[in-house]
Design a protein around this nucleic acid. Structure first.
Length: 756
DNA sequence: TACTAAGCTCTTTTT
DNA sequence: GAGCTTAGTA
């Protein structure tokens, strides 16, 4: 087939994947192989073939990815691209669920509970059931419920699954199923779905209502799924059903980048694709356009250590590029300083903007030390993830009012604001309202609205009545006013704005500013002419409920250093990448060391991080770190050792400043730790559980003698004190300046001789 | 009912 | 270190 000219920029493998539009297709796309391009052009090509865009469903991993792709497609084939059904699983299915809500007896204005809402509801249920929240930890319960839902196990199904129930019994949580039931019931009563419900209820909708399924099967003649390796059983089931009629399904993924098993994703989906669709065509994209040979090579060596993977060989014709640098520091604060200093110097040297840099970490809390260091040098930065704008208390408070206006049954919203700002409705009154609503199996709002009928509520009834009347006045405005008018009215009437405006502390001022920013955002939404969406409040709330931090509008004026977790860096690329906090038990996480499968997922995470880099990769670790108020001593991560010597910079590893300077910074008031640090130069703590394993690859160190000064990539500088001959595998005992004595097996160890 | 101080608990990643 | 709960006080 002659490829049309707009596909000229693609290579052969990419072109084939684009042109093969009918039947089941799986594209295995290595990191940096132009996966997004292929997907984009594939959709554009379909539209060019006169397939109506509304017949195409494209599921992406983030809203941002969807938006960018849509913009790109629009460039190629014009405004028809607007009719594409494109977005995350959650947002697309939320849209379908709103249309079909009555089939599931939900209001079409159902609320979407975020994790906080869900957890506090679970907490409340545990309390109401008078269970011990030390045994029934809301977090664990939430995860277990979420897990069940991701595997399509409803509360009813759970109750009749004897293995699950007996597991709970054995692990001391026999009442779990009752919590699950109560939670599901309360969500339903509140007209609310949590994130997992959006998927599970879609599956339920299609399963129970064949006519609805038929309608969408007919509508979505072409289905494309990005990041297929990170789909879970529930998503799999939905896609399978939807695609059953036409089987024009194209999935794109990379098993080496599967990093979401914790939320139910199963790599089996991608491995089983050929079993599900016997006549599936498979395309492999193996040429990497993103990174230097050094980076591609190092990443390949790392991932090769995993057993579970599809065969593929990622390669590149890019230049060799600079070697990987390892930065070692004594504390997390010093790590921040060294990394930021390196960014500063690199920027000078390469004349690139700060937008070309990213700092990647395993956990959100690690951002702190880098923020501080960046602020000190006045380098602009932006943090993705963590507490996002919409998670802030003041923002959630106003949104809770708005949610309640749209869906009065929303329990989480009502609890949040019934006494905020304070209006003399205390906890005991709220407890009575909850009790009354549980007895009558009604929503909280029904009780609040008809408070006069319930003598139980007592003296506070008048206050509740006043609150109820105020809310009703807002509700009556709902249909005649746009989102902004209503929101600003609510902000004023409830006293929220005034309350924060009067607070002149720095915190109060910033809260006030956030509220104003929120209102401005709503204004922008109502004034946006490019979108055909209705401008009412309920549409606005739908829009924001599934937004994440990555979707927030960029101000592109100042280029900024990005900070994010590795998970949220998926799909992104930067010329200069710093992977930080490479310490054992942190990355790989100590919670992921229970099985080979878990460790392999951590390794895939490392692989994802490495392959974000285009030009230069830097790794850093600290040998001690503050966490939860205590100082932990850290061992460098095993992942550092897994990097082959040939990819590492040979110049001496930057030596760190020593204890005195570290002492001045952030060691808090833990006197015993400080004195231990002063005496011994190292800190041991109860948290350091795992022994260091010595498991290194061959280095270029055959001529070592006692007395040599050596440097090791993990342990820093030291002096050889004893050699033990054991054939090829000579052992060497080294006294390291910082970590003391270690025995290394020479044929595996990466030792560099500094002086003989 | 509202506010404050002291105490306890977090230890992963996200839609 | 932060965020939340509890106990004690106004």
């Amino acid at each position: 087939m002659q490829a049309p000219p707009y596909l000229d920029s693609l290579n052969e493998a990419q072109k084939q994947a684009v042109l093969h539009t009918s039947g089941p297709v799986m594209i295995i796309a290595g990191a940096g192989s132009g996966k997004t391009r292929v997907l984009t052009y594939r959709i554009a090509h379909l539209i060019r073939q006169e397939i109506p865009a509304y017949n195409i469903l494209a599921l992406t991993f983030t809203n941002k990815a969807a938006k960018e792709m849509q913009a790109r497609i629009m460039e190629i084939c014009g405004s028809e691209a607007r009719n594409l059904w494109m977005g995350t699983f959650h947002s697309v299915f939320a849209k379908i669920l709103r249309i079909e809500a009555d089939r599931l007896n939900y209001p079409s204005s159902f609320t979407i509970y975020d994790t906080d809402d869900s957890k506090s509801l679970i907490k409340a249920i545990i309390k109401e059931m008078q269970l011990d929240d030390k045994i029934y930890k809301p977090n664990i319960i939430y995860n277990r419920i979420s897990n069940a839902k991701n595997n399509l196990i409803t509360a009813e199904a759970y109750a009749s699954a004897s293995d699950l129930v007996s597991y709970d019994f054995k692990s001391g949580r026999p009442k779990f199923i009752e919590i699950y039931r109560a939670y599901a019931n309360r969500c339903f009563k509140a007209g609310a779905m949590d994130f997992d419900d959006l998927l599970m209820n879609t599956d339920k909708l299609f399963r129970m209502h064949p006519d609805v399924l038929l309608k969408y099967q007919h509508k979505f003649k072409y289905i494309m799924v990005d990041e297929y390796q990170d789909t879970n059983i529930c998503q799999y089931s939905i896609i399978k059903r939807l695609a059953a009629a036409h089987e024009n399904i194209c999935v794109v993924g990379d098993d080496a980048q599967s990093i979401y098993s914790f939320r139910g994703a199963t790599i089996q989906n991608i491995l089983n694709f050929q079993r599900d669709y016997r006549d599936a065509s498979i395309f492999k994209l193996e040429q990497n356009y993103r990174s230097t040979q050094t980076i591609v090579g190092a990443a390949g060596h790392i991932i090769a250590k995993n057993k579970d993977q599809l065969e593929k060989e990622v390669w590149t014709s890019n230049e060799e590029g600079e070697k990987i640098r390892i930065i070692r520091a004594v504390t997390d604060n010093e790590e921040g300083r060294l990394v930021v200093q390196s960014i500063f110097e690199q920027r000078m040297k390469s004349q690139e903007s700060y937008g070309s840099f990213v700092i990647l970490y395993r956990t959100n809390y690690q951002s702190r030390s880098f923020e501080e260091a960046l602020r000190k040098l006045s380098i602009p930065y932006r943090i993705y993830g963590g507490t996002s704008f919409y998670q802030r208390k003041e923002v959630k408070d106003l949104i809770a009012y708005l949610r309640l206006v749209v869906n009065p049954n929303d329990e989480a919203a009502l609890k949040r604001i019934i006494n905020y700002p304070a209006r003399k409705i205390g906890n005991s009154t709220l407890d009575k309202i909850i009790l009354t609503s549980n007895q009558g199996n009604t929503s909280l709002w029904e009780v609040v609205k008809n408070v006069a009928q319930f003598p139980l509520i007592g003296r506070s009834a008048a206050h509740v009545q006043r609150f109820s009347l105020m809310m009703q006045s807002f509700m009556s405005m709902k249909d005649a006013h746009n989102a902004y008018d209503l929101a600003s009215h609510v902000a004023k009437q409830t006293g929220l704005l005034k309350f924060l405006h009067e607070d002149k502390t720095t915190e109060g001022i910033s809260k006030y500013e956030n509220l104003v920013e929120l209102l401005n955002g709503i204004k922008e939404f109502t004034e946006d002419d490019t979108s055909e969406l209705s401008k009412d409040l309920s549409t606005y709330l739908q829009e924001i409920s599934l937004l994440t931090d990555a979707d927030k509008k960029e101000d592109n004026e100042t280029p900024k250093v990005s900070l994010m977790t590795i998970h949220s860096s998926k799909g992104l690329e930067y010329p200069f990448v710093y992977i930080v906090g490479l310490e054992e038990n942190l990355f790989p996480s100590q919670m992921a060391l229970n099985s080979r499968a878990e460790l392999e997922e951590e390794r895939r995470l490392f692989y994802v991080a490495i392959t974000r880099a285009e030009k230069k990769l830097n790794l850093s670790f600290a040998t001690s770190r503050f966490r939860f108020g205590s100082l932990l001593s850290c061992e460098p991560s095993r992942f550092i050792d897994e990097i082959d010597n040939q990819f590492l910079e040979l110049q001496p590893i930057k030596s760190s400043s020593h204890q005195p300077s570290a002492l001045n910074k952030g060691f808090g008031n833990n006197k015993s730790l400080i004195s231990s640090l002063q005496k011994t130069g190292k800190v041991t703590s109860q948290f350091s559980k795992r022994p260091i394993d010595i498991n290194f690859k061959a280095g270029d160190t055959s001529n070592i003698d006692s007395g040599d000064q050596v440097e090791h990539n993990r342990f820093g500088k030291g002096k050889v004190i004893l050699l033990e001959g054991e054939g090829n595998a000579r052992k060497v005992k080294v006294l390291f300046e910082e970590v003391g004595e270690k025995t290394l097996v020479l044929s595996f160890a990466k030792l560099r001789i500094i002086s003989s």
